[in-house]
C-alpha cells in the first residue's frame, strides 16, 4: 500500500514540475511513476506490488467482460418469443471469509450472467444465489469458484 502512495507522490511531483494538474497529465505522470518503480523493483521489493496490480487489473477486465456478456444474455432471453425459464435459488459454500471479500464477491455475482446474490447465512459460510437458469447448479457453483472467487483470492491475499 505504501508503494501505491509513493506512486501517487511521484505522479503529483510530475504534475507539479510540468506545471499542469489536468487529469491527462496526471495520468501520464502516474504511468511514468509506474515505469520508474518497475525499473527499481528488485531494490525496493515492489515485485509483489506489480504482480498484485496485474491481478487486480485482470479481475477488473474479467468483471467488465462478464457485465457485457450478462447484459447481452439477459437481452437475448427477454426478447426471445417463448421464455424457457428455470429460475431457482442455490446455496454456494463460500471459501473467502473476510467481510470485504464477501461483499465484493456478492456484488460481482449480482452483475454477472444469470445470477443474483440474495442473502448470506448468519455464520458467513453460505451465499444464497438466485439463478435465472438453475437447471445445473453444480456448473454454476463451479463457474463462480473457478472465476471470481479464485481471482478475488489471488488479488487480495
Amino acid at each position: 500500500m505504501s508503494l501505491f502512495l509513493v506512486n501517487l507522490l511521484l505522479a503529483l511531483s510530475w504534475s507539479a514540475v510540468t506545471g499542469s494538474f489536468s487529469f491527462l497529465n496526471f495520468a501520464f505522470g502516474f504511468l511514468l511513476a509506474i515505469f520508474a518503480l518497475s525499473l527499481i523493483r528488485e531494490q525496493v521489493g515492489s515485485v509483489g506490488y506489480f504482480s498484485r496490480a496485474r491481478r487486480v487489473l485482470s479481475l477488473l477486465v474479467l468483471f467488465v467482460y462478464e457485465l457485457v456478456l450478462s447484459a447481452w444474455r439477459v437481452a437475448v432471453m427477454v426478447l426471445s418469443p417463448n421464455m424457457n425459464l428455470k429460475p431457482g435459488i442455490f446455496a454456494y459454500p463460500l471459501r473467502v471469509d473476510r467481510d470485504f471479500e464477501i461483499t465484493m464477491l456478492a456484488n460481482l455475482i449480482t452483475l454477472t450472467p444469470g445470477t443474483l446474490s440474495v442473502d448470506v447465512s448468519d455464520d458467513r459460510r453460505i451465499l444464497y444465489v438466485h439463478a435465472i437458469d438453475a437447471s445445473d447448479p453444480e456448473a454454476a457453483r463451479r463457474d463462480i469458484a473457478e472465476g471470481f472467487e479464485r481471482k478475488i483470492m489471488e488479488a487480495f491475499r
Binding site: K86, P87, D119, Y128, A134
Partner: peptide, 11 residues
C-alpha cells in the same frame, strides 16, 4: 415467494 416455475430453492 419464487414463481411457480422455479425448479429449486435451497434457501
Amino acid at each position: 415467494r419464487l414463481a411457480s416455475i422455479s425448479v429449486m430453492d435451497e434457501m
